[in-house]
């Protein structure tokens, strides 16, 4: 019985220690995550976000999965002097330590393909981001023509309905700890 309690105690303590083990997951912060509103009939969508690496080593975004879609890929769009737009698939996007990588219109984006039911405007879509070191981070992406206004204003003193929504969203977000560390 005593050993049983002992084992249970060790088990419980180790559970508490688990998040304390040096995990790089807490070093990655996601901001301004949004998906461009889809035209009717479209099966693809573009996702954008800012990724900040607060860690001491570089990390790499190596993949993503979006709910309601077949797959999500990392893409880079370029436009040359002749106005030719080119799209290229990337194996990964590196986020150097202490830096923020922006996946923004005109550059990098998440190419979300095979969207079964078009994403509803102003809704939030769960997207799981896969990092080489930080593992997976699931975060909501706002569907609109740009990032949600005041998306990053959860710490600001001005209270508005957007913020209220954000707070609620964060409580649902298991990555709350790692996304609000700074």
């Amino acid at each position: 019985m005593k050993t049983c309690i002992q084992v249970l105690r060790i088990f419980c303590v180790s559970l508490f220690l688990l998040p304390a083990t040096p995990s790089l997951a807490s070093d990655i912060m996601i901001g301004n995550a949004w998906i461009r509103e889809m035209p009717h009939g479209a099966e693809v969508a573009a996702g954008y976000l800012d990724i900040t690496n607060h860690g001491a080593v570089a990390d790499r975004l190596i993949g993503a999965e979006a709910s309601g879609a077949m797959s999500a890929m990392l893409h880079q769009m370029t436009t040359d002097d002749n106005g030719v737009m080119r799209m290229r698939h990337l194996e990964g996007i590196e986020i150097p330590p202490g830096e923020t990588m922006s996946l923004a219109p005109g550059g990098y984006h998440l190419m979300i393909v095979g969207v079964r039911e078009p994403y509803e405007a102003h809704s939030d879509i769960e997207v799981t981001l896969i990092f080489e070191h930080a593992g997976t981070i699931t975060t909501p992406f706002f569907v609109g023509h740009h990032a949600r206004a005041n998306h990053d204003a959860a710490h600001s003193p001005t209270m508005n309905h957007e913020q209220g929504h954000n707070m609620e969203q964060m409580q649902h977000d298991e990555n709350h700890e790692q996304t609000t560390d700074d």
Partner: peptide, 11 residues
């Protein structure tokens, strides 16, 4: 139409 960015933006 399978263009995620520049086509819907331009339209």
């Amino acid at each position: 139409t399978h263009c995620p960015e520049i086509c819907p933006t331009t339209l």
